[in-house]
């Protein structure tokens, strides 16, 4: 498995774990009817820090055994896979933004709009990483 493919696994896995926890907390606040009092800002900042730390740590761990491979620029296949994955993620992002825009008419609160858009961003980034993994498995 190449460094780039390992990197895609790290991104997808860390996004699922960190934002999975974040949106689980959001869902709990919604279920408890605490959307007005729930301070999601601080939780979001903690999630971003946790995500950055996890990704840095795991990238270091996979780079240490083969530092030359980690330092090497993307080759043509890596670039093609990255572009294909961005195309898939853009479709997810576009559909999500349209869905959140329509949902804003039903739930016109900043809590739902901000978290809805954040969910779409997280989902599209996870789709991008997952698509990369699929294309690497298929070898583009």
């Amino acid at each position: 498995m190449s460094f780039r493919e390992k990197s895609a696994w790290i991104v997808a896995g860390s996004m699922l774990v960190v934002y999975g926890f974040y949106f689980w907390m959001i869902a709990k606040a919604v279920a408890a009817g605490q959307t007005q009092s729930f301070h999601y800002g601080s939780l979001l900042v903690q999630a971003v820090f946790a995500l950055v730390l996890i990704q840095i740590l795991f990238h270091i761990l996979v780079a240490v055994p083969k530092p030359a491979e980690a330092r090497a620029p993307r080759d043509e296949r890596d670039q093609l896979i990255a572009l294909k994955a961005i195309r898939v993620a853009f479709i997810a992002l576009s559909l999500g933004v349209v869905l959140v825009s329509f949902s804003a008419a039903v739930y016109p609160s900043s809590f739902f709009i901000v978290n809805g858009l954040l969910f779409v961003l997280v989902l599209s980034e996870t789709v991008r990483a997952a698509s990369q993994i699929v294309y690497y498995r298929r070898s583009a």
Partner: peptide
């Protein structure tokens, strides 16, 4: 100037190089 994985993919006919 490519990765070993890319050479492997080319060799197996799974990726057509530029």
């Amino acid at each position: 100037g490519v990765t070993r994985q890319t050479v492997n993919a080319i060799e197996q006919g799974k990726y057509s190089p530029s």
